[in-house]
Design a protein around this nucleic acid. Sequence first.
DNA 1: ACTATGTCCTGCGAGC
DNA 2: TGCTCGCAGGACATAG
Length: 269
Amino acid sequence: MPELPEVETIARGLSKRVTGDTIESVWIGSRHQPLKSPAQEIAATLDGATIARVRRVGKQIVFDLESPRGRAQWIVHLGMTGKMLVAPPELPVEKHTHLIARLASGREVRFVDPRMFGKLSVVPEHGFRAAGEEPLDVGVELFAGLFRRRKTPIKSALLNQKLLSGIGNIYADESLFRARVRPRRRAASLTRDELKRLYHAVQEVLNEAIAAGGSSVSDYVDAEGEPGFFQLQHRVYQRTGEPCLVCRAPIKRVIVAGRGTHYCPRCQK
DNA sequence: ACTATGTCCTGCGAGC
DNA sequence: TGCTCGCAGGACATAG
């Protein structure tokens, strides 16, 4: 599922291939679940707009658009199974394609999302605000302050996009393992040292994952249709019963915040 | 003001 | 072999 490193990889790929290009026409499928803004409004905003910039904010892809009608932003959240592909027009349109933007260069940007947890919207210029802090930009003091006085499990807090934007199930588990903190620990119970370890673990995991092009665990591919490789470096995620890479104890799986959660019962306190 | 839980959706794999 | 069923989970609604 696309979390910060996957979305970063996709946004970089899109940026490289569509910046400066102009959307000449837009097709939107009849399944409207993935749309947060009305289909008509999305089509009208994209149609004829030039893509000035593509970037990642939290887990969303933000397209800065310029057109004779003014500036706007196209916001794409990939949900669990969303893909943004840059494709030649002759490439067969795969099932669950919800939007196709045809570009002046001849290429197409396609939004594909089988499970339809993804969301598309358009907002006025500068209309989009990230809910929480960027995990890779935040300082250690502000980071630690986010968890103070919170009774919720630390894993739930990591998944809360209003605190930090971009961490999902994979990177929450991997970060907690590296920080040697159990996912069910109450956030407020973490010591200063543990919070510091967690801060560095989050940065390390996210940066390593970006370098590997993200994790391909379900059907994630980047804008060019290429998978990522960070799943090969997962130390706990989906390794239930396998030996911990540090102490050989079998990795445990429990449910926290309704999510499958993996940890080492010996290394993580 | 927080926190916990159910819901949306389709594809896939386990189990019979 | 072929079927059914349950699970996967990001964000939000709703309940407590």
